[in-house]
Amino acid sequence: MNATAARHETVLSVDTLRLDLLGSPGQPGLVEDVSFQVRAGETVALIGESGCGKSITSLAVLDLLPPQVVVASGTISVAGEDVTAATARRMDALRGSVVGSVFQDPMSSLDPTMTVGAQIAESRRLHLREPRKVALERAVELLELVGIPNPRARAAAYPYELSGGMQQRALIAAAIACEPRLLIADEPTTALDVTVQAEILELLADLQQRTGMGMLLVTHDLGVVAGIADRVVVMYAGQTVEQAPTEELFANPAHPYTRALLSSVPQAGRRLTALPIIPGRVPPAGAFPAGCRFHDRCAFAEARCLDGEIPGNRAGRQSRCHQA
């Protein structure tokens, strides 16, 4: 594929997505008015506190929502194909081939009864119909590609015989086995040691550079974001509240929530003082306040913030706030 032509192609487009919890009619969606895009060769970070809807949004992209959550409106298209309208069979064909995924906890994301190699070979057998032996051979090459020493022995090993970092490398190898256009990495480093975290991020960035795939990185770790994301989408209480190129967002955050989030990160070289925190907590789904969902935790809230919809997309900066 021509790398420059591919670079601007949109591999993921989420448009005014709303996810509802079944059996709770009349309530605001778990996720509402979420829109963002990921282009080929680009890393987009989806950030926010726990419970703000990041992971459920990424599961919606894979059409792997838990049974009680449904797409109520909006569209999700992956490499031009509408996921919300696709059949179950078509989704089986897309997952693993067009979209690869890496999840949070590598140990529990690997089947304990199957060798590491067999799990990496799985998607090649499923999508490319490769015979078992051929796919296993390819799994060894993939393990080498993700920087695992002695890949042949590791391919024959069972998950418990590998360290956490190696397990995550193996899962990354499985995710990219069919050269997907989009990689969804949901908190890929959260369960790992700090030293290993950096290695995994480096690996992801390196693989993305080589393959030109788009990457959606779901994380609550701003350090991760600064390191490898091109653009950042900030979510709060089920909505996207701000999105901007990484440098711009860090230098000049527009939304009060983004500002609060950035100021609550400890920074090296600064004197140790009390770390600013955001008072209160993310409201649970079903208890989102009217108006701006952040207003009760916001230092700048005024009367007009208390009710009415606040548009998320306006000219210039994308920030869901009356003031910025």
Binding site: L64, S97, L126
Partner: peptide, 24 residues
Amino acid sequence: PYILAARARGASRGWLVRKHVLRN
């Protein structure tokens, strides 16, 4: 989680049952 991971690799229902569910 490993079932979710296998589904995310494109495992169909039948494959999932044969390769992952029964043995575990």
